[in-house]
Amino acid sequence: MAPEAPQRERAIAFTLNGESVRCRAPARTHLGDLLRHEFGLTGVHLGCEHGVCGACTVLVDGRAMRACLMLAVQADGATVETVEGLTESGRIRDLQDAFHARNALQCGYCTPGMLVTAVELLSEAVAPSREEIRDAISGNYCRCTGYHAIVDAISTTAEARRSKEAAE
């Protein structure tokens, strides 16, 4: 069978924040731009578009990934979650509360990517040390806070989840 011809634009279908969506995407558009422009998910922030700053981090098939380093057409068939979806599902309410109470954000531009990275960390580590938290978020650049408060907020959330599980 001859392979399909390469295309400059493709129709794609994927699951976005729990909804099944379809659209056409130019091949050259990265996932971050698609989420922002096609779906209005402006919580996906573009800080560098070369994979370093972490502001565009989203969950793809449950794993944290840089939306600027995936082509939009590669989302075809995948499950994508952004801060908007994580908010609406209530899944990160405790984490958001902890960030709020600790003032672990200032300008808020890094925050969605930071939260997504924290979601993955907290799904893998039950009791991360401050050092492990710093390591996990070391690919998410924050210019405002100096990181201390972010480490506190993630640590507090992990602790609260442990207490809650112990109580259940």
Binding site: R36, L41, T42, G43, V44, H45, L46, T82, V83, E84, T87, Q96, F99, H100, A101, N103, L105, C107, G108, Y109, T111, P112, L115
Partner: peptide, 21 residues
């Protein structure tokens, strides 16, 4: 008092409005 910022919740939910938004 250490009152949390009222406008921070919006940013935590990815609902900020930066110029590109």
């Amino acid at each position: 008092r250490s009152v949390p910022r009222p406008n921070a919740r919006r940013l935590l939910e990815g609902r900020g409005t930066y110029v590109d938004d």
